[in-house]
Structures are given as structure tokens and as C-alpha cells.
Write a protein that binds this DNA or RNA. Structure first.
Length: 351
DNA sequence: AAACAGTGCAACCGCTCTGAC
DNA sequence: TGTCAGAGCGGTTGCACTGTT
């Protein structure tokens, strides 16, 4: 049987609404309120179906609708809420006064999603994805010339990328290992909100960023004894202690990480096991303790782990995507590699 | 100046879910 | 328990506008 159609197809107008139709709808709702959409068109003298009237009212004619361009704050809110709520546009819209779910959805699909992809962030997981990053956009950066960029590729560990992809396709392996390690329970007390096991089960894909070392590393250790995975593998970046032991480069890394993750907002959740694993790595020890000239309160805990709970994930994408200017918004992700290269630095010393 | 491609957005479609009856 | 209306969602379409060739 099924449900009867919401409107008769014959004689029902479609397409853009005219000002006259808008006026009829507004006047009717002002008198009777937005109720019984099925009978509303007939009573209001409209050749529209009830659903069309409802959508026109909720998405355009409602008096509390805010028109115009999304503000900086609104955009950031959308990104953060999306990382928590996913494609629940109505839930997002409920937290953005004056904006409709349809408007937010359109804005996401036409602006934010495209920008995230262009800058190497997965719009579903909000995780940094080097494989999505449009590296060509980096070439024009004044801070990075092509030769430096080409050398940076030695930092990208294709095996780590493959591992991440493998974990992504076999989440049960990671889940089992996480439970075994009690990774996100006791150690994360007094830190950022802890995600629950059922978050993995229900929506694993949205909760595990590919480049999250605190999740990838223990699973990696369980899957393999490959030494390079224990040697300070930061998810996507494999740092060679010999390459990066130079003081200027350490400072540059600190600057870069601090610019991405302000310390006051960064609560780190690495387990003791992870910290132990990583502290055994010479390069990390070097990086953590090597700077005696820096005034930054730089703890390597901040590099070991990005927060694992979803509310912290937007820190990555939203802090990247939003700049003070329109141009900066479009280049947020490139800031990740916007190390301040000291003048006179000879990269051959590090590569 | 005209043709074309790209972009943004309102609106629609088909479907599912939820709650009331 | 089944039906119905409303709401919500993902995907898509159509059109106006803008930039490029």
C-alpha cells in the first residue's frame, strides 16, 4: 500500500516561488500558524504541495531566518559541530540561530567540504590526510621553495599511510587493541573528554583520524614489530632522529606545532605505554629536551598525541580552515608546513 | 562581444524515521 | 499494530551569476 503522496502531482506548481505566493503563505501562517501542511496550500490558495510550502517556510520565509554570508564564527561553529554531529544538519542548525539545515548543508557542500578536501583534510573524519592534500598549492608559498618541498617528501612515510588505511578498513583490530590497552580510560582522566567504546562501534569512521598517533601507534605495535613503527612514528610522519636533530629545525617544529595546537587548548591523551614506547625513541627525546633557547613551554606530550575525543578534532580542521582574511582561509592547511625556515639554514645538514 | 565553464544557491525528489492516533 | 503527517536527510536539478577564453 504505502503512504499516499503528500500532494497530487497534477495541477501543482513547482519551481521558484513568486512574491505573490510568498505573501499568501506568509499571511496564512501569520493567521493560522504553521500547521497541517497538507491542507495548507488549498486553504491558502496556493497551487503547491504541502511539503513545498513547508520547505519554503522553514528554509526561506521564516521571520527568524538570517540571510547572507556565513560569518567567520558561524563557519568555525559548523566545522566543529560537524566533527561531532556528522551530517546532522538540523542539529547543527539548531545551534546556529537563523540558519537552516538546508542552508548549512549547501554551504558545507559548496564551500567548506571543498576547501577541506583541497587542503588535505578529510571532510568526514576531519583528519589530516596527506594523500588528499593539494601539494601544488604549496609551491607558491614564499616560505617554501620547490627544492625544499621536494625534500620534505622524505618526511612522509608511505608505510604509515598504508597502515592507517589498513586500520581504517579493519577497525575491529584497532578496537580490540584499544580495549586491551585501556587506552582511553584511566590515563585520560582530567584531560579532554574521553570517547566511549560504543563511539567506535557506532561511528568508528568519524572518530579515528588517520593521523592520530595515540590510536594508530598501539595498534601498530600489536600488528607488527616493525621497528620503524616504534620509532616515533607520528601517524603520517616518520621522523628520523639524525635528520631532525638540528636545533633550528627543532625550534621550527615547535613553532609549527604550537601554531597548530595552542597549548592552552591542547590536552594530550597518550597512554603510558605510548609515552614509554615513544620516549625510547631518540629523536623524540631529542626533540623534547633539546631546546634550551626556546621560551616555549613545549612538552613533547603535545606532539605525541592529538586529543582523541571528537570535540578536539575540529581544532585541527577549524584552526586550519579559518584565517583572518579570506586568503588565509583558503590556505589553512598549508600552514602545517609553514615552518619558519631560518635564514642561512642548510637543509643538507638535516636531510 | 559572444560562447563557454565554473560556481553558488534555492528548490525539489525520494526515502527513512518518529510520534501521534 | 498499522496508518498517517511531519520532520529530516542525502542527493540532485535548474537557474542566475561570474570569470575565462
Amino acid at each position: 500500500m504505502g503512504r499516499s503522496p503528500c500532494c497530487e502531482k497534477n495541477g501543482v506548481k513547482k519551481g521558484p516561488w513568486t512574491p505573490e505566493e510568498d505573501m499568501k503563505l506568509i499571511q496564512y501562517i501569520q493567521i493560522h500558524g504553521p500547521c497541517n501542511w497538507r491542507t495548507l496550500p488549498k486553504n491558502a490558495g496556493l497551487q503547491r504541495c504541502g511539503k513545498s510550502c513547508r520547505l519554503r517556510w522553514t528554509n526561506y520565509l521564516r521571520p527568524d531566518i538570517k540571510r547572507g554570508r556565513f560569518s567567520f564564527e558561524e563557519e568555525e561553529t559548523i566545522i566543529q559541530l560537524h566533527s561531532v554531529l556528522g551530517n546532522k544538519w538540523s542539529a547543527i542548525a539548531a545551534r546556529l540561530p537563523g540558519r537552516t539545515d538546508n542552508e548549512i548543508k549547501n554551504y558545507w557542500n559548496t564551500h567548506i567540504r571543498r576547501r577541506l578536501l583541497r587542503n588535505g583534510i578529510d571532510p568526514v573524519t576531519h583528519a589530516l590526510r596527506i594523500d588528499l592534500l593539494d601539494l601544488s598549492s604549496l609551491i607558491n608559498l614564499p616560505q617554501i621553495n620547490l627544492s625544499i618541498l621536494l625534500r620534505l617528501q622524505t618526511l612522509l612515510n608511505p608505510e604509515a599511510l598504508r597502515l592507517a588505511a589498513s586500520l581504517r578498513e579493519n577497525p575491529e583490530v584497532l578496537l580490540a587493541k584499544l580495549q586491551e590497552h585501556q587506552l582511553f580510560n584511566a590515563q585520560l582522566q582530567n584531560q579532554t573528554p574521553v570517547f566511549q567504546t560504543n563511539q567506535f562501534e557506532n561511528n568508528f569512521d568519524q572518530k579515528i583520524p588517520l593521523c592520530n598517533p595515540s590510536t594508530a601507534l598501539p595498534a601498530a605495535n600489536s600488528l607488527s614489530n616493525q621497528s620503524h613503527l616504534k620509532q616515533g612514528n607520528m601517524g603520517l610522519f616518520s621522523i628520523n632522529s639524525e635528520n631532525l636533530s638540528g636545533q633550528p629545525f627543532q625550534d621550527s617544529l615547535k613553532t609549527a606545532f604550537e601554531s597548530v595546537h595552542p597549548l592552552e587548548n591542547f590536552n594530550y591523551g597518550a597512554s603510558d605505554q605510548i609515552k614509554k614506547d615513544l620516549s625510547e625513541n631518540q629523536s623524540f627525546q631529542s626533540l623534547n629536551s633539546g631546546s634550551n633557547s626556546s621560551s616555549h613551554n613545549f612538552s613533547f606530550d603535545s606532539v605525541l598525541s592529538t586529543p582523541v575525543s571528537s570535540p578536539t578534532l575540529p581544532n585541527l580542521s577549524s584552526s586550519f580552515i579559518n584565517g583572518n582574511t579570506e586568503d588565509e582561509r583558503g590556505s589553512y592547511c598549508t600552514s602545517l608546513l609553514k615552518f619558519e625556515i631560518p635564514e642561512g639554514l642548510d637543509f643538507d645538514d638535516f636531510m
